[in-house]
């Protein structure tokens, strides 16, 4: 075991042990975003505090919060009706504040229809409810292909729908932010709301999978 003061290795080894600062590896778009943001603040389009507040609202969301909303809709018919009528109003009681002009729009899976969400133009996602989208949701591969060949993409996620089920792709291209209300799985009749929450996954709320029966 080396003792303090042992110094028989070269200094090149030291250099290799340092992680580069994140700022040293910023890409073109990260730098462009900072530059544009600073210019917009200088021009008074928005303030630095408004920008910070925007991130705070988006960071409020996470998939556990989404699961709470779904499990509530499964067990409370009035809440479900409210969620399907105007999602933004329904989730306000969970302190979810939709950003800007956007509105939460819930689409319900049934025995006849399976819904799946994509934003082909960028990566729109209900962040105040679900948090940040997964990387694959933002990938060009997913965005281009799920609109074009949804059944193949669903199969790649391991999702095979029963025959006769219509696949409905929603391109989140404007002011709605979509939440898939999955079907409550069979065999959960005696479950508490908390147990149901535990079954709901982010991917099921995007619609690339379904909520599986409990194992």
């Amino acid at each position: 075991m080396p003792t303090i003061g042992d110094h028989d290795h070269s200094h090149e080894d030291h250099e290799r042990t340092f992680q580069p600062d994140e700022e040293d590896s910023l890409g073109y778009y990260a730098i462009a975003e900072m530059a544009v943001r600073e210019l917009l603040i200088e021009r008074g389009i928005f303030t630095a505090d408004e920008f910070r507040r925007h991130l705070e609202v988006a960071d409020h969301g996470n998939q556990a919060l989404g699961a709470k909303v779904v499990a509530r809709a499964w067990t409370d018919p009035d809440f479900k009706a409210s969620l399907l009528r105007d999602g933004s109003v329904a989730v306000a009681e969970y302190d979810v504040e939709m950003l800007g002009h956007t509105r939460l729009y819930a689409v319900e899976n049934t025995h006849d229809v399976h819904n799946v969400i994509v934003c082909t133009l960028c990566s729109c996602y209900p962040k105040p409810l679900l948090g940040l989208p997964p990387d694959w949701y933002k990938s060009r591969n997913y965005r281009a292909r799920v609109a074009r060949e949804p059944r193949k993409v669903l199969a790649e996620f391991g999702t095979f729908l029963p025959e006769g089920v219509t696949v409905r792709v929603h391109d989140s291209n404007a002011d709605m932010r979509y939440l898939v209300l999955p079907m409550r799985p069979a065999g959960t009749e005696g479950y508490t709301v908390e147990q149901l929450e535990g079954l709901v996954t982010r991917d099921a709320m995007i619609g690339v999978t379904v909520v599986g029966a409990p194992v």
Binding site: V167, D171, M176
Partner: peptide, 12 residues
Amino acid sequence: YDGDPGDTLDME
């Protein structure tokens, strides 16, 4: 398109 002919694409 080679999925089910009833499949739809919704957008705003």
